[in-house]
């Protein structure tokens, strides 16, 4: 019977351990919320105590009210920005994947053009944007182009690395199997580049939204970027803040969508 004693002790320690685990899980969920609310409170307190004028900085509850009252204005301006960002994201990344494929198979092309890609990437977005607007006019096209150009570089660099991240032995194996270059690309290189590709896509998702907004700043009647400019000129700080919240919420959702795709797509990446 006294054999039972140690097993009871063990159960108790298991219970304690599980309770600690549960508490740790709740802490992980609650602490970020607590952090956010404490900063919101600080914001409210500063605006109230120092009696900041509404056109300089609005109180958080005013921003929240604007988000609800003007949601139709906000959403109708978010739509073009979202279309530009997503179209630019798709175009820029497809171009990057195509160029990376070319670079990996034709080293001389990479040697000739990679320095130029680096050079173009080093030009700030705000400098690239006017050039593209002069070239492409005032519609959605230049904004899509700016978003695409921003996405291109991180994906190109990562994709070249990913396509080359194939072990020499795997290449020897494919050679012994008399695999063609195309088969090596499809069965080996493309697959091993997936983790690298998603690392770049997650950067590109947020960057494409920034690109679309910067494009709208320079010349546009609609979109999150245009609304930011309008609200600033009209000293409508509550609308300005609400617009920023709207744009960054979309950016975060875009990022989370890519991360979800990554989880669905790459079970082997989580080693």
């Amino acid at each position: 019977m006294d054999v039972m004693v140690p097993s009871v002790t063990l159960d108790r320690s298991v219970d304690a351990w599980q309770a600690a685990q549960r508490w740790a899980r709740w802490k992980r969920r609650l602490l970020p919320l607590a952090g956010a609310f404490s900063l919101l409170f600080l914001w409210w307190a500063l605006v109230t105590v120092f009696d900041v004028k509404p056109f300089i900085a609005p109180a958080p509850q005013v921003v929240a009210a604007t988000l609800i009252q003007k949601y139709d204005v906000l959403l109708s301006n978010l739509l073009p920005t979202a279309i530009e960002a997503v179209s630019g994201f798709v175009a820029g990344n497809l171009a990057a994947i195509a160029i990376a494929t070319l670079f990996v198979h034709r080293k001389s092309v990479e040697m000739a053009f990679f320095p130029i890609v680096v050079l173009i990437n080093s030009i700030p977005v705000v400098a690239k944007a006017p050039i593209l607007i002069l070239l492409l006019g005032n519609g959605m096209a230049p904004k899509i182009a700016i978003a695409a150009v921003i996405c291109l570089f991180p994906t190109l660099v990562n994709m070249v690395r990913g396509l080359e991240a194939v072990s020499p032995q795997a290449l020897e194996l494919m050679h012994v199997l008399s695999a063609s270059k195309w088969e090596i690309f499809i069965r080996l290189r493309l697959q091993s580049s997936v983790p690298y590709l998603f690392a770049a896509l997650k950067i590109a998702a947020s960057a494409s939204v920034v690109g679309a907004i910067v494009g709208e700043w320079i010349g546009s009647q609609q979109g999150i970027g245009a609304l930011i400019i309008q609200a600033t000129y009209n000293f409508d700080s509550a609308l300005l803040y609400a617009t920023v919240v709207c744009g960054s919420t979309f950016s975060v959702l875009f990022f989370l969508t890519i991360r979800l795709l990554e989880r669905l797509c790459g079970r082997w990446t989580q080693i």
Binding site: S167, Q169, A170, L173, M174, L177, S178, A179, S180, E183, I184, R187, L188, Q191, V194, G266, R267, W268, I271
Partner: peptide
């Protein structure tokens, strides 16, 4: 030199899928 994204069976099948 197994392909990490393929199951054991898919790895063994690789020679059937490339190089004719």
């Amino acid at each position: 030199t197994l392909l990490p994204w393929r199951t054991v069976l898919e790895n063994v099948r690789l020679p059937m899928q490339v190089g004719g």
